[in-house]
Design a binder for these strands. Sequence first.
DNA 1: AACAACATGTAACCGGTTACATGATTGA
DNA 2: TCAATCATGTAACCGGTTACATGTTGTT
Lengths: 194, 194
Amino acid sequence: MSDPASPLSPTAKVILGLLRAEPMSGYEIKQLVDRSTRFFWTASFGSIYPELKRLSEAELVAGTEAADGDRRQILYELTDAGERSLTEWERSDPAPLELRDEALLQFFFAAEPELAAEAMEAKAIDHAAQHARLQEIAPEAASKERPTPLRALQFGLDLHEFCREWCEREAERLRSDADSVRSEPAEPAEAPKD
Amino acid sequence: MSDPASPLSPTAKVILGLLRAEPMSGYEIKQLVDRSTRFFWTASFGSIYPELKRLSEAELVAGTEAADGDRRQILYELTDAGERSLTEWERSDPAPLELRDEALLQFFFAAEPELAAEAMEAKAIDHAAQHARLQEIAPEAASKERPTPLRALQFGLDLHEFCREWCEREAERLRSDADSVRSEPAEPAEAPKD
DNA sequence: AACAACATGTAACCGGTTACATGATTGA
DNA sequence: TCAATCATGTAACCGGTTACATGTTGTT
């Protein structure tokens, strides 16, 4: 009902995408996001449950109470309209990549090489940590029938490795520059001015 | 006044950082953000002006109406408390890198190799475009006394080049896989089943 | 008995963008 | 004189997170 093609919210995109594979509850969606798209597309309970209700009202998904012997839960499945909406989004131009990189901002503003090196080292540690978390979920991605979840994960692994190496090289460069500055013009009394 | 060390908002971080170099108006801050930190740290007028007011009330910046022969504008400068607050943030652990990558989500969900390849191609185009925008602002970054703005820009250039190449390779792989599938088992009548 | 995990949902808050409103100045 | 740019600011909206509230089920 309502308006036929209001644009999908960020959370709607990941919900519909995951539901195409199989019906799921909100709780399962959250768990799956955390083990799959999390590193480039997050979603919290506080966004998933209300969005499921909206999608249900828009009839892009249909929820049925699964009151089997199991716990109470609502299993949502994609409707035909939901499938069409998902496909339409998939064929549309993607929004440009967005970054929010606090370590890089600290680096940008660093007043001394020492601080710049520290920012790069902190950033390298973050990339290493994110790489490790991706490694953990690799087995699950590899078990899927479709290849793209694993390839997306591989992109993440390669990306974080690239970033980690860049930052480590930069930190080393800054450290060695600082060393040579410290040892060369020891007495700046009559040091050459360039 | 108020509480002595409430954490800085994202917009506050970039404002204080930029003001350390020289006093500026909100308008100039916005322009400078667009020509420097934009690719990893955005800020809009709607966030800058209110934040300047808050920072002013917290006495981390001090604004003076510059009513010279010029246009009316408010020049903000960093106070000592602002400088301390900025330095404290710079030495703190950075928040992890955050990504929101719609093209990768489309790729992740792609039902066919054709769609996956299209997603990678769209992503490659985005990275090329962002790379080109960074190239444009390179001269300004190179003119700064401190080296880190140019190095941060170089990180951006290298990052987008890495991503563009990754996506192009992936798209080519998907296209050539599709070709071999199309030409090999032409008549699937008695084709070998694995 | 108590705790972890399952499961749904809401409320308060945060912090951003876009669009709007206003008006001065500069240059074509 | 008309448009672009300079310059500040607000309001409406969007969409997220965190914390809270509630209750069940399975495990130790």
